[in-house]
């Protein structure tokens, strides 16, 4: 099968793709697939995680990531077989704080004293909210790297994909700098917080929401979109993940659901296919088919609600074999063919 030509990309202006979603929807998988989809010919993409789970390392089957940008995969190849590069970064608050202090302040001996006094530990563990400030700060740095900047060895990225906290917490996470700006009326912290907020609220950022076609996640997606809009944060697309296989046509689904399938015809089909058949097997297959058809109907109801949000949507199948490198590339191709890029 030849791949259909890629649609023109939906997000050419976006430098920062934030990926959120309810727990259990496969948010991290989708973030990784988006990064692979964005890494077209000659492009460099950074995939960041901030929740300390080493999910990227596990998905790509590599050693746990340090606080350092690592080459992790080639992007999904285009028709000519060419692709770009995906790097990954595991951001932990403590390293981000130390790096931030070293980068912007020449503290010298005082820097060490901060650590001895427990300031670093306090800031990254006890003080609520500070973690989020540090995590978003590092992402901001990676997005805003000047081409040919101070450090020659630093990669400049065409896009950064952030595997962000779940939908229930995303407004708080992305809004933490505006809280901070309210506390620091002047000074360096205020300036940094303002710069981060203006990036996050600009068209250079898109917050994508991952959902599955079930009631609670779809409701949460809708609530999340409303919250993001109210906070002035740019809503991107909705990625519908883990979609059930489309093995039956619409008419077949209706027949199965309404018990209009003749067991005799299934029996004769199975015989033709050289399956050792009895009535129990036929009844089981029809029962399983009915379970499936009922769930597909529920999915369709939720799909209509997703469409009503009026933002670009993408669908990814549930892969029965689970997620590995190959599966991620497959998902990335599917995203690109649906116009993600």
């Amino acid at each position: 099968m030849t791949a259909p030509p890629d649609r023109s990309p939906d997000w050419p202006q976006v430098a920062l793709h934030v990926v959120t979603g309810k727990g259990g929807t496969g948010k991290s998988t989708v973030a990784a697939a988006l990064a692979l989809a964005l890494a077209t010919t000659g492009k460099n993409v950074l995939l960041c995680e901030v929740e300390g789970r080493q999910g990227i390392a596990k998905m790509f089957d590599v050693d746990p990531l340090p606080y350092e940008e690592r080459r992790i995969a080639k992007g999904a190849p285009d028709e000519q077989g060419r692709s770009g590069q995906v790097n990954a970064l595991h951001i932990d608050p403590e390293s981000a704080l130390l790096e931030y202090l070293a980068m912007y302040y020449k503290l010298g001996r005082a820097g060490k004293a901060l650590d001895r006094f427990g300031v670093i530990d306090f800031a990254t563990t006890v003080a609520p909210g500070v973690r989020d400030v540090l995590l978003t700060g590092k992402v901001y740095e990676a997005v805003n790297r000047p081409r040919g900047g101070r450090k020659g060895n630093q990669v400049v990225y065409d896009a950064v994909v952030l595997d962000a906290p779940p939908t229930g917490r995303i407004g708080q996470f992305l809004g933490v700098n505006s809280e901070l700006a309210g506390l620091a009326k002047v000074g360096p912290v205020r300036n940094q917080a303002d710069s981060i907020m203006s990036l996050l609220r600009s068209p250079r950022t898109a917050v994508h929401l991952v959902t599955i076609l079930e009631e609670m996640p779809v409701q949460e997606t809708s609530d999340g979109i409303a919250e993001l809009r109210a906070a002035g944060l740019p809503v991107g697309g909705i990625v519908v993940n883990l979609v059930r296989p489309q093995a039956l046509s619409t008419s077949a689904l209706a027949m199965v659901r309404d018990d209009e399938v003749a067991p005799a015809s299934i029996t004769s089909d199975l015989k033709r296919a050289k399956v050792d058949v009895d009535a129990a097997l036929v009844a089981s297959l029809v029962d399983e088919g009915r379970d499936h058809a009922v769930r597909r109907q529920l999915e369709d109801e939720q799909r209509a609600l997703v469409a009503a949000e009026g933002v670009p949507t993408y669908e990814l199948p549930r892969l029965s074999g689970g997620i590995d490198r190959g599966a991620l590339l497959e998902l990335a191709q599917l995203l690109r063919h649906q116009g993600f890029g």
Partner: peptide, 30 residues
């Protein structure tokens, strides 16, 4: 079996049911 049926009739409902069963079994095994 689904492949054999599809070779004879590409829109076979029984093939669809077999495919769904295979998917279900794989997920359960996983």
């Amino acid at each position: 079996a689904a492949d054999r049926l599809r070779a004879m009739d590409s829109s076979s409902l029984t093939a669809g049911l077999l495919q769904l069963h295979a998917d279900r079994v794989r997920i359960i095994e996983r």
